[in-house]
């Protein structure tokens, strides 16, 4: 037998896929005016901007410290309120807690819906309702955190050991007792870990909410850029990066202890 008797598989499908991919890339590049020409003319601009940003304005660090602290506070409160609201919602979304698809599918739909709205957009809408300040920021982060924690939680709850649940059913517990003694002990540590994780994400989110007037360091970011004070911008960015990394490190250590 030689290779002529063995049929080579057709390449039509892979060729079409490649073609489609290139078409999509080309179309997207066209739509967004992304060309290499733009890139090459942009590179010197990027470099000169970076030059203007260096060195950071060291004196500015102490000036923005209060605002950085407020950013952390916003993130913490948002994560906390979000976590509290996530408890009932994640239980409702778990198919092993509430067996009726009507309940858990509705809860999941609400969760998916919440997660489609970006944080900055929520903030912009809350600013329109409540005016400038921290309150819209905290509210936006609350909704944002709720979406994250509740989704992670219900996915975790669905993997818990059914044994203790059966035991609670066997002793005749009502739904609340059943959850309190069968479910909560199994998920508490993971819940705390997800809360910390969401807090980390919130710090990043909180740092930019100020751009739409919802409080925190983002306001200064906008201001310094508008006044072309790029060295101060660098200070803000660096400060934020350091804070994020330090908090990531701390929460990571706590999470390791928890689990």
């Amino acid at each position: 037998m030689n290779e002529n008797t063995i049929k080579k598989p057709s390449k039509v499908k892979s060729t079409l896929t490649t073609l489609l991919l290139f078409l999509l890339i080309w179309g997207s590049a066209y739509k967004t005016d992304s060309t290499f020409e733009e890139l090459f003319t942009g590179i010197p601009e990027i470099i000169s901007l970076l030059r203007e940003m260096i060195p950071p304005d060291w004196a500015y660090f102490s000036y923005i410290t209060p605002e950085v602290l407020i950013t952390i506070q916003m993130a913490l409160l948002g994560a906390t309120f979000g976590a509290i609201l996530a408890i009932p919602l994640s239980l409702l979304a778990s198919s092993n807690i509430f067996v009726s698809p009507w309940i858990y599918q509705t809860a999941r739909f609400i969760l998916n819906f919440l997660r489609t709205i970006p944080d900055l957009l929520l903030a912009a809408i809350f600013v329109a309702i409540f005016g400038l300040g921290l309150i819209p920021g905290v509210l936006a982060l609350t909704i944002f955190s709720l979406g994250i924690i509740a989704k992670l939680m219900y996915e975790f709850i669905e993997t818990i050991d059914p044994g203790p649940l059966e035991a609670m059913t066997a002793v005749g517990a009502n739904k609340i007792q059943w959850i309190a003694f069968g479910v909560i002990p199994q998920i508490a540590a993971q819940f705390a870990a997800y809360f910390l994780y969401t807090f980390e994400i919130n710090i990043r989110a909180a740092a930019i909410l100020g751009l739409v007037g919802a409080g925190g360091i983002g306001l200064y970011l906008d201001e310094t850029l508008n006044f072309l004070e790029y060295q101060k911008t660098t200070s803000i960015i660096l400060y934020t990066l350091v804070v994020i990394m330090v908090i990531d490190y701390i929460t990571k250590k706590i999470r390791e202890k928890l689990l």
Partner: peptide, 20 residues
């Protein structure tokens, strides 16, 4: 760690506002 929005602001300063 560098938020995309901050990155976008910087790129706007460099290549001008717009989708690029």
């Amino acid at each position: 760690t560098f938020p995309e929005i901050v990155m976008a602001i910087l790129f706007i300063k460099a290549v001008g506002p717009g989708a690029f």
